[in-house]
Design a protein around this nucleic acid. Structure first.
Lengths: 108, 108
DNA sequence: TGTATATATTAGTATATGTTCATATTATAA
DNA sequence: TTATAATATGAACATATACTAATATATACA
């Protein structure tokens, strides 16, 4: 039996610390209006940092900070073109959950 | 055309304020380890407040505070039996997202 | 090399959040 | 009514979070 097996497989009552950390961090990323707006933009296509800032009426600094947050969680990635960085989504599963929740919230 | 129609349907670039609030609040609820552990317990069956506290090794007060949080978002409900309140899940969709994310986090 | 543009980083600040202790409330039973 | 058990609430505290202004870094190009 695999030592790295998660507790879900054992149907245990509590979650192991690492799973708990990853899950809470990921949901936390989706738990802020600014990050949701950024990710919602990136559903459709890539954007530069300034592109996001202008579209969402946010400071460049704010966008950059939140992108770093999302990048650390591998929820977004970027490609460089000259001095411009184009950010795009990097976790299809999480993006699907975001879409689901937006639809869930809209169907009231 | 319906005035209450959400912006997702229009494929707009930004989300309306109310959707943004509901979505971020819901994800915020899932963005805390304690609340995740509580909800993860309630996946299987109902628990009393003290039952949760004992199982997860948390203070009664902590559990009660977090249950109020989850109750306000209609993520949990309760039924009374004497002086005991049995809490259970009340949003199948959100619970499914939690399960999905836990599985997602485990499959590393 | 020097300048311009795009982005990242740092430090400061205000606010939000989670936990705890102490206490209040509620319902039951003697 | 009084006592007990279960839960809720309020206040205080420490920590986390998000935003901003100012500045640093990096790339391209003249």
């Amino acid at each position: 039996m695999d030592n790295n097996q998660n507790q879900t497989a054992f149907n245990n009552k509590d979650l192991d610390e690492e799973t708990l950390f990853v899950v809470s961090q990921t949901f936390k990323a989706l738990g802020d209006p600014t990050r949701i707006r950024i990710l919602n933009l990136l559903i459709h296509h890539e954007y530069s940092v300034n592109g996001i800032a202008e579209t969402l009426q946010l400071r460049q600094s704010t966008v950059s900070h939140q992108l770093r947050f999302l990048k650390n969680l591998r929820l977004v990635k970027y490609r460089r073109e000259g001095t411009t960085l184009y950010y795009s989504q990097d976790d299809e599963h999480v993006m699907n959950m975001l879409k689901q929740m937006i639809d869930h919230a809209c169907h009231n």
